[in-house]
Design a protein around this nucleic acid. Structure first.
Lengths: 127, 127
DNA sequence: CTATCTGTTATAGTAAAGCTATAACAGATT
DNA sequence: AATCTGTTATAGCTTTACTATAACAGATAG
């Protein structure tokens, strides 16, 4: 698992960390039961503070991606199943993107086409 | 045009304002040439500071949605056309949503279905 | 002309978020 | 026995968001 952070980014470091770990999960680079580096270890490797790493880990645990066994390390949990609440959230996020797209002159057809193009590209990168 | 802000929201007030004006544009409640209330007027109506309204206006102008004619008021500009840069941004945003969806067990078929359901619902609400 | 309204600019203060630094404790591991 | 671990606490710094107040000068309406 390759992790790299950009201190200059608008995105907070702890969120970059959280998102990259979720991304590694989706790519299959991290699987159920895998152990994560200690907060101190990862903090030194990335050149950041251990509290920032801890914040990312706590967030990931609260979202169900991993389980922290106190001082015995943290491990990836079983894959999540789509809940109704999450699908609602996804639909809401998509709606926001669509409204923004419409304000830029993107109509329904173009929006759907952009979605399909993105999905096709992602399907390719999976191989 | 009905504007309402939620001071308790995570979303900054000036962004709530910006987004609601863009939303009104998409809905057709605001059209090219329409005048916007003065920053003081709108600030009093919404119970917020004039600088917060001004920040929203400045943002909207920098994004091409309106033009500020100094002390002679602000007016909605002509509708935007989709630029390549914006479509790239849209594809990037969609990709982020898709990765997040996959981490919640949503596959490609379910993602596409959620998009179509959202678009159908929006098409209905337009009438 | 006079008074009012306008956008703009300046200064200042508060609050919260994000990140870092340091230290200490106690359980787990080697 | 020494080291590594997560956790907790305190503190400081920077940036963002929001508000408050004031002043200036152009535009408008009486």
């Amino acid at each position: 698992m390759l992790l790299q952070i950009e201190p200059q980014s608008d995105e907070p470091i702890y969120l970059q960390l959280r998102n990259q770990i979720v991304q590694a999960l989706v790519r299959g680079e991290l699987k159920e039961g895998d152990a994560l580096p200690s907060v101190r270890r990862l903090a030194v490797d990335l050149g950041i503070n251990l509290h920032t790493v801890n914040k990312a880990y706590q967030l990931l645990e609260s979202q169900g991606y991993l389980h922290i066994y106190g001082r015995r390390g943290a491990r990836i949990t079983a894959p999540l199943a789509p809940t109704g609440d999450y699908v609602d959230q996804l639909a809401s996020d998509l709606k926001k993107l669509y409204i923004e797209a419409q304000s830029h002159g993107v109509d329904r057809r173009m929006f759907e086409q952009t979605v399909k193009a993105m999905l096709a590209k992602e399907a390719e990168n999976a191989h």
